[in-house]
Write a protein that binds this DNA or RNA. Structure first.
Lengths: 167, 167
DNA sequence: CTTGGAATGTCAACAACACTGACATAAACT
DNA sequence: AGTTTATGTCAGTGTTGTTGACATTCCAAG
């Protein structure tokens, strides 16, 4: 071994960051971090007898007001029956309204009511607070790397959906 | 604003990486990436009529052979009833064995059988393959940042558990 | 205009995985 | 001897996901 360059020097020639041990650490980090990622909204949702699925629906409706059910379906990656159950309760509770499409009357366009927007804000604030603290701790360079790795970890369709949401 | 340094320069003075928009992108990246993260093992598990909970149990038993039920409980962050349901099927299927503790006979120490180790390897290989590809794409610097942000995102107890696993 | 397909919604059944609460047992600690 | 700890188990419940079947509405092609 002529040049056994150890450490995680940024040269890129060293492949030590691709060892099974390093990968396992990353896998476990994802597992533990995702728990933290969802912990705060979960606590709020539990009090309202809602779940993560409601959070996700509300998040993406807020993100893209007027989105269709089908669109939401492909982003969330669940079956229409599963999404429909969630949407029904949200509509029933007055957090979401569904408008028949003008151009294509088969489509239902989804919007948050004021009440829905209020819930979304509460959940987002909690989740962003943790995210902000983590970003601040880690610094801007780390955040760049964080996003880069996450993006590379996505399925191709999800990467497309993610890119689309960023436009 | 005297020095309005734009971009994500690594100076650290610019706080543009802490805007709500940047945070939301990170949140969505976590959501989509976690889906990719679990997709490959999920496919394998579905064929065996196992679920993610089985994967997690097998992973951490492989990681720390001889670990006790209580220990596993605190790492996984679920109730003993939930874990027990999973362990019962794994033991019944001959993937895990539970040995009464020698020093403290109340404790059960958990080990993978050869068959259990084989499943763990199959699942790990799939998950590591995606992780490796993502790491390779993103590069060692990005990976460092990735881990740094994830660690900062964990709850304090999880960070401790994570650190302990790395010793 | 009729027919086929797409988008949506609904009903029913089921499985995985989490929860709470209650109770049992054995072993260890005080 | 009494309490705590570690574990296991039973019963019930809730969220979220799945399939399968079927109805409705509408667009578009023949």
């Amino acid at each position: 071994m002529p040049e056994g360059r150890t450490g995680q020097g940024y040269g890129g020639e060293s492949l030590l960051f691709l060892t099974d041990e390093q990968l396992r650490q990353g896998i476990e980090a994802m597992f533990f971090a995702y728990r933290g990622f969802t912990a705060d909204p979960d606590r709020i949702l539990a009090e309202l007898s809602y779940g993560r699925a409601h959070h996700r629906a509300v998040h993406f409706i807020n993100r893209s007001p007027g989105t269709t059910v089908n669109n939401l379906l492909s982003i969330l990656g669940v079956t229409k029956q599963s999404l429909n159950r969630v949407l029904r309760t949200l509509i029933g509770d007055g957090l979401v309204i569904s408008k028949v499409g003008e151009l294509d009357k088969r489509e239902r366009h989804l919007y948050l009511t004021d009440q829905g927007a209020a819930l979304e804000a509460t959940l987002s604030d909690a989740q962003r607070a943790r995210m902000r603290a983590a970003y601040k701790d880690a610094g801007p360079e780390a955040v760049q790397g964080f996003k880069k790795v996450l993006e590379a970890m996505m399925d191709a369709d999800m990467r497309r959906a993610y890119a689309k949401l960023r436009d």
